[in-house]
């Protein structure tokens, strides 16, 4: 019973904390670029404002266009309930292992790409084709990185993996260094951050995510943007809890959960700083350089897997 309560509140926390994470990164980026920047809670205001607006639909929009935001949002929220945020061993973690989690991301992306093409504008189609190109290259790298972890722990369940890594004495796994780097590169590509896509503007010809949601307005747009923020938080939590598993609560006691909350807040705080600094110091890549970037991620995860097989057994 307490497990389910915790699971539900953790899923809600995922929903509610996502805009804060996005706002925090944005505020940091502005400060690093000598701008004042909106306060970190600005995304909440934006979402509230968008929910209060009237829906404007294109004449050519089909039902798919209207269904897509709800699908994208609910699938991402479901993915959020699976990833251990505060504690491991929650009943929801039995729903899906990490391969299904990647499947959730793929499902959300499928509807996002459909929505981009639905209205029939040139921008939407370009955005969709780019998104699919990037993700088809990013997904194998992500899967290989995940398999490296799964082979070490002999389980693909996220809860089991994190619990195993948090309880055993700290080890220096060579394969984890590569898996973490590969996953970070993939996370940047999948969440549309700077070297791949620019989240700050929709006035660029090479944009990807913004091009797909260009036709949306009001609550549809709010749901799409909220889902994107949750995806950023999800990848952040995955990176933080898989590769720095210490601090995650192992039981359901209030103390463990409290420590878990404190630990994940600290981890995401620093992850946000790293993200903001890299985004400020890098320029956006040309689209045709993206395959090279992602093949680096693939090679990293491949070496991670190989060095697990060769060195760690």
């Amino acid at each position: 019973m307490i497990g389910w309560l915790l699971a539900i509140s953790q899923a809600l926390l995922f929903l509610l904390a996502a805009p804060l994470m996005a706002g925090w990164v944005k505020w940091l980026k502005c400060r690093l670029q000598n701008r004042k920047g909106p306060p970190p809670w600005q995304p909440y205001r934006d979402l509230a404002k968008l929910f209060g607006k009237e829906v404007v639909l294109a004449e050519t929009a089909s039902p798919v266009f209207r269904v897509a935001p709800y699908m994208v949002f609910s699938v991402t929220a479901l993915a959020g309930s699976v990833v251990p945020l505060l504690t491991v061993g929650l009943p929801t973690s039995a729903i899906a292992d990490v391969i299904v989690l990647i499947g959730f991301f793929a499902l959300a992306r499928f509807f996002l790409a459909l929505a981009g093409m639905d209205v029939g504008t040139a921008f939407g189609g370009m955005g969709s084709s780019r998104e699919m190109t990037i993700s088809s290259l990013a997904e194998p790298a992500l899967l290989l990185a995940v398999f490296t972890l799964a082979m070490t722990v002999a389980s693909t369940n996220l809860s089991t993996v994190i619990a195993h890594l948090a309880t055993e004495p700290p080890q220096l796994y060579p394969s984890f260094i590569f898996a973490a780097l590969a996953m970070a590169l993939v996370a940047v590509a999948e969440t549309g951050r700077v070297p791949i896509d620019n989240p700050a503007t929709h006035l660029e010809l090479t944009m990807t995510h913004e091009a797909m949601i260009l036709e949306y307005s009001s609550r549809h747009l709010a749901l799409m943007e909220w889902a994107a923020m949750m995806k950023l938080l999800l990848y952040g939590v995955l990176l933080a809890n898989l590769f720095i598993p210490w601090g995650v609560g192992l039981t359901f006691t209030p103390a463990a959960v409290g420590w878990g909350l404190l630990a994940i807040t600290a981890k995401l705080f620093f992850l946000g700083i790293i993200l903001a600094v890299t985004e400020t110091s890098l320029a956006k890549m040309r689209l045709f350089r993206v395959p090279q970037y992602l093949s680096l991620a693939f090679i990293l995860s491949l070496i991670g897997l190989l060095s697990h097989v060769i060195l760690e057994r």
Binding site: E168, P169, Q171, L172, Y173, P174, S175, I177, F178, I303, S307, L311, E312, R313
Partner: peptide, 17 residues
């Protein structure tokens, strides 16, 4: 095997990779 190794050897393995 890895969990039985002292830290220095783990560092060498990491350097190898």
């Amino acid at each position: 095997i890895l969990s039985g190794l002292p830290l220095a050897e783990q560092v060498i393995l990491t350097l190898a990779s």
